[in-house]
Simulated assay, not measured.
Amino acid sequence: MAIGKQAGISPRDFDRIMAEKVPFVGDMGVITESLDAGVARLRLPFDQRFIRPGNVVCGPAIFALADIALYAVAWMVAPVADYAVTTEATVHFLSGAKPGDLIAEARILKAGKRLLIAQCDIRSAVDDALCAHVIGTYAMPPADKAG
Protein backbone atom coordinates (compact mmCIF):
# COMPACT_ATOMS: atom_id res chain seq x y z
CA MET A 1 0.00 0.00 0.00
CA ALA A 2 1.26 3.42 -0.85
CA ILE A 3 1.78 5.83 2.00
CA GLY A 4 1.01 9.44 1.37
CA LYS A 5 -1.70 11.95 0.82
CA GLN A 6 -4.70 10.17 -0.69
CA ALA A 7 -6.27 11.88 -3.67
CA GLY A 8 -9.63 13.22 -2.61
CA ILE A 9 -9.12 13.02 1.17
CA SER A 10 -8.43 16.35 2.75
CA PRO A 11 -8.64 17.33 6.41
CA ARG A 12 -12.09 18.84 5.78
CA ASP A 13 -13.22 15.70 3.93
CA PHE A 14 -12.11 13.52 6.85
CA ASP A 15 -13.93 15.74 9.36
CA ARG A 16 -17.09 15.58 7.23
CA ILE A 17 -16.85 11.79 6.86
CA MET A 18 -16.43 11.38 10.62
CA ALA A 19 -19.37 13.68 11.41
CA GLU A 20 -21.61 11.78 8.99
CA LYS A 21 -20.49 8.19 9.54
CA VAL A 22 -19.36 8.28 13.19
CA PRO A 23 -21.57 10.91 14.88
CA PHE A 24 -19.81 10.42 18.24
CA VAL A 25 -16.65 11.84 16.65
CA GLY A 26 -18.61 14.82 15.32
CA ASP A 27 -20.04 15.37 18.81
CA MET A 28 -16.51 15.47 20.28
CA GLY A 29 -15.61 18.35 17.96
CA VAL A 30 -12.30 16.84 16.76
CA ILE A 31 -10.64 18.99 14.08
CA THR A 32 -8.24 17.51 11.53
CA GLU A 33 -5.40 19.99 11.10
CA SER A 34 -3.37 18.07 8.49
CA LEU A 35 -3.12 14.77 6.60
CA ASP A 36 0.17 14.45 4.76
CA ALA A 37 2.89 11.88 3.99
CA GLY A 38 1.52 9.22 6.35
CA VAL A 39 1.08 11.64 9.26
CA ALA A 40 -2.22 12.91 10.65
CA ARG A 41 -2.47 15.84 13.06
CA LEU A 42 -5.78 16.32 14.89
CA ARG A 43 -6.97 18.62 17.66
CA LEU A 44 -9.51 17.90 20.38
CA PRO A 45 -10.90 21.25 21.53
CA PHE A 46 -11.24 21.42 25.31
CA ASP A 47 -14.62 20.72 26.84
CA GLN A 48 -15.29 20.81 30.57
CA ARG A 49 -16.99 17.39 30.19
CA PHE A 50 -13.53 15.84 29.63
CA ILE A 51 -12.26 16.75 33.13
CA ARG A 52 -11.89 14.08 35.79
CA PRO A 53 -11.01 14.40 39.49
CA GLY A 54 -7.53 15.86 39.81
CA ASN A 55 -8.35 18.52 37.18
CA VAL A 56 -6.88 16.55 34.26
CA VAL A 57 -8.41 15.37 30.99
CA CYS A 58 -9.89 11.88 31.34
CA GLY A 59 -8.36 8.82 29.73
CA PRO A 60 -11.38 7.99 27.55
CA ALA A 61 -11.15 11.40 25.82
CA ILE A 62 -7.41 10.96 25.28
CA PHE A 63 -7.80 7.46 23.86
CA ALA A 64 -10.74 8.49 21.65
CA LEU A 65 -8.58 11.22 20.09
CA ALA A 66 -5.74 8.73 19.51
CA ASP A 67 -8.07 6.18 17.92
CA ILE A 68 -9.54 8.81 15.60
CA ALA A 69 -6.04 9.93 14.58
CA LEU A 70 -5.04 6.31 13.89
CA TYR A 71 -8.19 5.91 11.78
CA ALA A 72 -7.19 9.05 9.85
CA VAL A 73 -3.90 7.47 8.79
CA ALA A 74 -5.82 4.38 7.64
CA TRP A 75 -7.64 6.68 5.21
CA MET A 76 -4.25 7.66 3.82
CA VAL A 77 -3.56 4.13 2.57
CA ALA A 78 -7.06 2.97 1.59
CA PRO A 79 -9.23 4.88 -0.90
CA VAL A 80 -12.21 4.29 1.40
CA ALA A 81 -11.39 3.04 4.89
CA ASP A 82 -14.99 2.66 6.09
CA TYR A 83 -14.37 -0.98 6.92
CA ALA A 84 -10.98 -0.53 8.61
CA VAL A 85 -11.30 -1.42 12.29
CA THR A 86 -9.09 -1.22 15.34
CA THR A 87 -7.89 -4.70 16.26
CA GLU A 88 -5.41 -3.82 18.99
CA ALA A 89 -4.21 -0.76 20.86
CA THR A 90 -1.72 -0.21 23.63
CA VAL A 91 -1.99 3.05 25.53
CA HIS A 92 0.74 4.46 27.72
CA PHE A 93 -0.57 7.39 29.77
CA LEU A 94 2.55 9.41 30.53
CA SER A 95 1.36 12.55 32.30
CA GLY A 96 -1.88 14.22 33.30
CA ALA A 97 -3.24 16.44 30.54
CA LYS A 98 -4.00 19.92 31.87
CA PRO A 99 -7.39 21.38 30.96
CA GLY A 100 -7.04 22.64 27.39
CA ASP A 101 -6.92 21.41 23.82
CA LEU A 102 -5.15 18.16 23.02
CA ILE A 103 -3.08 17.55 19.88
CA ALA A 104 -2.71 14.09 18.33
CA GLU A 105 -0.01 13.24 15.84
CA ALA A 106 -0.34 9.78 14.30
CA ARG A 107 2.05 8.20 11.85
CA ILE A 108 2.16 4.95 9.96
CA LEU A 109 4.79 2.45 11.06
CA LYS A 110 3.85 -0.31 8.59
CA ALA A 111 1.09 -0.59 6.02
CA GLY A 112 0.40 -4.05 4.67
CA LYS A 113 -2.45 -5.52 2.66
CA ARG A 114 -4.34 -6.69 5.73
CA LEU A 115 -2.94 -4.74 8.68
CA LEU A 116 -1.81 -1.20 9.33
CA ILE A 117 0.35 -0.48 12.37
CA ALA A 118 0.63 3.11 13.52
CA GLN A 119 1.63 5.15 16.53
CA CYS A 120 0.11 8.27 18.00
CA ASP A 121 1.43 10.82 20.46
CA ILE A 122 -1.02 12.99 22.39
CA ARG A 123 0.28 16.33 23.64
CA SER A 124 -1.25 19.10 25.67
CA ALA A 125 -1.66 22.32 23.70
CA VAL A 126 -1.32 24.14 27.04
CA ASP A 127 2.29 23.16 27.79
CA ASP A 128 3.29 20.71 25.00
CA ALA A 129 3.62 17.90 27.56
CA LEU A 130 3.51 14.38 26.11
CA CYS A 131 0.38 12.94 27.77
CA ALA A 132 0.06 9.58 26.04
CA HIS A 133 1.73 7.31 23.49
CA VAL A 134 -0.46 4.81 21.64
CA ILE A 135 0.45 1.99 19.27
CA GLY A 136 -2.49 0.66 17.29
CA THR A 137 -3.22 -1.97 14.70
CA TYR A 138 -6.02 -1.64 12.16
CA ALA A 139 -7.46 -4.48 10.09
CA MET A 140 -7.70 -2.97 6.64
CA PRO A 141 -10.72 -3.50 4.40
CA PRO A 142 -10.61 -6.23 1.78
CA ALA A 143 -9.99 -4.94 -1.75
CA ASP A 144 -13.68 -5.37 -2.69
CA LYS A 145 -14.72 -3.12 0.23
CA ALA A 146 -11.95 -0.53 -0.11
CA GLY A 147 -13.38 1.41 -2.93
Rank of each mutant, 00 (worst) to 15 (best):
M1T: 06
G4H: 01
K5D: 13
A7R: 10
M18K: 05
E20G: 06
K21S: 15
P23R: 13
P23H: 10
V25I: 15
V25L: 14
G29T: 02
G29P: 09
V30W: 03
I31K: 09
I31T: 12
T32Y: 06
S34Q: 10
S34C: 01
S34I: 02
A37T: 13
G38L: 05
G38Y: 03
V39F: 00
V39P: 06
A40L: 09
R43G: 09
D47I: 05
Q48L: 03
P53K: 01
P53L: 02
G54W: 00
G54K: 00
C58D: 00
F63K: 06
A66T: 11
A69D: 10
L70M: 08
A72N: 10
A72G: 06
A74Y: 03
V77I: 10
P79T: 04
V80D: 15
A81L: 03
Y83A: 13
V85C: 02
V85R: 14
T86P: 02
T86R: 01
E88W: 12
E88T: 12
E88A: 14
T90M: 13
V91P: 01
A97Y: 11
K98C: 07
K98W: 07
G100L: 12
D101Q: 05
I103S: 06
E105G: 05
A106Q: 06
L109Y: 02
L109Q: 13
A111Y: 05
A111S: 09
K113R: 15
R114F: 08
L115K: 15
L116T: 07
L116F: 03
C120R: 04
C120N: 13
I122G: 03
R123Q: 13
S124M: 09
S124I: 08
A125K: 00
A125W: 07
L130H: 04
L130P: 02
C131V: 14
C131D: 04
I135T: 15
T137N: 08
P142L: 11
D144K: 00
